[in-house]
């Protein structure tokens, strides 16, 4: 036992020393220095380049404009990964049909709910504040830090808080069921997908255009999504993407939490019945 520990520690130390040495050898690039890499400089210069709009993304936020414009297709597939993970979770936790005995089971469980009155009250208030803060994060994703996923993760904390402080039945009574969440998620994702595809409609009528294009470019004939006036700056398609992603991610998380918080007794009953068959 001690011998293996010692060997592991030695290996770790050797690894750390080796990699750090390698870093010192490749010193100009691996460590943070006073300069950034040229590619980064390009994004920083061009994300809101008012003087040469050929390469701009119409958004002051370099990260968001990279996420949804310069490297937009990555983000589409990243959302797909999350979507597929949710589908995987649903697959693993799927039940055939919840039949009456299981219903009464949940009725039985219903009598003891949630935490003390203080926690319940404050959780309600904090959850509502979270909802509105999340909308603020999503709607300003293209101007200030934030964006679709951040806001979606933020808003998902509200149902989580409700599930813990007030039990999942509180959500289900208010019609926040799994099916609705799945539908909402699909709608959000399809909105993103359509926004990716919309420029290709122009391609059908012979324009030069590429999928997921946001702003007009000199080498294409696509007019670009409207950037908005200064009082309503929506940065082309970024705003649509952010809001749709916000809805999708929030609904997806809520779906996961609803699945996770199903009482274990339901699954035990289901498996009993399956073996009986």
């Amino acid at each position: 036992m001690r011998g293996t520990e010692l060997i592991v520690v030695m290996c770790t130390v050797i690894l750390i020393v080796a990699v750090t040495t390698a870093v010192i050898m490749g010193i100009t690039a691996y460590t943070p220095g006073p300069e950034v890499r040229p590619l980064a400089k390009f994004y920083l210069e061009n994300c809101l380049n008012l003087w040469n709009r050929a390469y701009w993304a119409a958004s002051p936020e370099a990260v968001c404009s990279m996420l949804w414009d310069y490297r937009g297709i990555d983000t589409l597939y990243e959302t797909t990964v999350f979507f597929l993970a949710i589908i995987g979770g649903v697959t693993v936790f799927r039940l055939i049909e919840v039949t009456p005995p299981l219903e009464s089971l949940s009725e039985k469980i219903r009598r003891v709910l949630g935490l003390s009155v203080i926690v319940r009250t404050i959780s309600k208030i904090v959850a509502s504040i979270i909802l509105i803060v999340a909308v603020a994060i999503a709607a300003h994703g293209h101007l200030t830090p934030g964006g679709g996923f951040q806001a979606g993760a933020a808003i998902s904390v509200a149902p989580l808080m409700i599930i813990i402080a007030l039990s999942r039945y509180f959500l289900e009574e208010r019609k926040l069921t799994k099916e609705r969440m799945l539908a909402l998620r699909t709608v959000g994702l399809l909105t993103i997908w359509c926004t990716v595809i919309i420029p290709l409609i122009f391609a059908l009528v012979g324009q030069v255009v590429y999928a997921m294009q946001n702003q007009a470019k000199p080498w294409t004939t696509f007019p670009g999504f409207p950037t908005g006036q200064l009082s309503t700056w929506i940065a082309g398609s970024l705003f649509i993407y952010n809001m749709a992603e916000f809805v999708a991610v929030g609904a997806g998380f809520t779906l996961l939490f609803l699945l996770l918080s199903l009482p274990e007794e339901v699954f035990r009953e289901f498996m009993r019945r399956l073996t009986r068959k």
Partner: peptide
């Protein structure tokens, strides 16, 4: 404001 709301509640919940 949020801390004045959540800090005592959290302490109470965990203490309970």
């Amino acid at each position: 404001i949020i801390i004045t709301l959540t800090a005592p509640t959290g302490s109470h919940a965990v203490a309970r």
